[in-house]
């Protein structure tokens, strides 16, 4: 273990609430210790969910690990918290470029250039993307490397690797499916979409004994949404955004993809809650798109 990592590890152990996790996880990432970097960053994101740096760091680690869908979500979270974050804009541009969406890649790079006009790497990336966009249809290595995210090692997957298919929203003209969660973006089981009257719209949920519990849980969820809305409004906390529930054996998160629906995502308790939150955000986006199509 190098001295700086040992020093940072000690500092984080002595003061778990410090921001030393940012430097430690980045040092581990740069040394290729991706599992360790991921664990440190995961703790930091859980502790500081409102810190864009933490999500940006997590995205770089996930990108290095080849989890491009996860990286996309993490960079999206960073941008939600800090819309002018050039590292996240460049990272998403990189992912869009890998997915073959050159226009989206250029759009994100142009936003990055507006946010930081003095960063020459952004202009270089823009020039390369524009120059090489004509060759985007062919899986040349030069094209894949055209938009490297900040300090990130490009994942080894080929340009059409499956994970990015889950990261990029489906085209709006895609036909509506029976369920939003069967297209590969999310597991059907463990995700439940419910309408305002407590009726199940999509998804499945199993009880501990393996029996189907979706309808039973759906009936409770409409009331949960109303109570959550009432509590946050009356306590001056605005509209409710999510409810994270830790239970022995499972974590679940409730969100409202639309004003008239509630989404429940549940995972085994070994899943970090922050990770379940990311899955729920992605599932909510999927549900919203699906509702627009079927509605």
């Amino acid at each position: 273990m190098s001295d700086d990592i040992r020093t940072l590890t000690t500092r984080l152990a002595e003061e778990p609430s410090s921001l030393a996790f940012l430097e430690l996880a980045e040092s581990l990432r740069q040394r290729g210790k991706l599992d360790a970097a991921y664990k440190v960053a995961r703790g930091g994101v859980g502790r500081y969910p409102g810190l864009a740096d933490a999500h940006d760091l997590m995205a770089r680690i996930l990108s290095d690990r080849g989890d491009l869908a996860g990286a996309f979500d993490a960079w999206s979270d960073a941008l939600r918290l800090d819309p002018l974050r050039t590292g996240a804009l460049k990272g998403i541009a990189f992912l869009y470029f890998r997915a073959g969406d050159v226009a989206a890649a250029i759009g994100h790079l142009e936003r990055a250039a507006e946010a930081d006009p003095d960063d020459p790497s952004i202009h270089q990336a823009l020039a390369r993307v524009r120059r090489e966009s004509a060759a985007a249809a062919s899986p040349a290595v030069a094209v894949v490397d055209a938009v490297p995210p900040v300090d990130a090692v490009p994942p080894p997957a080929p340009i059409s690797s499956p994970p990015i298919a889950a990261a990029v929203p489906p085209p709006p003209e895609a036909p509506a499916q029976d369920s939003p969660f069967t297209a590969g973006a999310e597991d059907e089981r463990g995700v439940l979409l419910v309408d305002a009257n407590g009726m199940r719209l999509a998804g499945e949920l199993s009880a501990g004994d393996g029996s189907e519990a979706g309808d039973r849980v759906a009936a409770q969820l409409a009331g949960v949404s109303r109570e959550a809305a009432r509590a946050t409004r009356l306590l001056g906390l605005g509209s409710w955004q999510s409810i994270a529930v830790e239970s022995p054996g499972a974590h679940f998160i409730l969100t409202a993809p639309t004003a008239e629906t509630v989404l429940l995502v549940t995972r085994d308790a070994t899943f970090p809650m922050a990770r379940v939150g990311l899955i729920a955000e992605r599932a909510a986006r999927t549900a919203r798109s699906w509702l627009e199509q079927v509605g």
Binding site: L205, S206, A207, G208, D209, S211, A213, R216, V217, A219, Q220, A228, A231, T232, W240, Q241, S242, I243, A244, V245, E246, S247, P248, G249, A250, F252, T266
Partner: peptide, 13 residues
């Protein structure tokens, strides 16, 4: 209803 034990922590955001 989901066959889980009672919550130990809840975060309403």
């Amino acid at each position: 209803g989901a066959g889980l034990r009672p919550p130990v922590f809840v975060h309403l955001r």
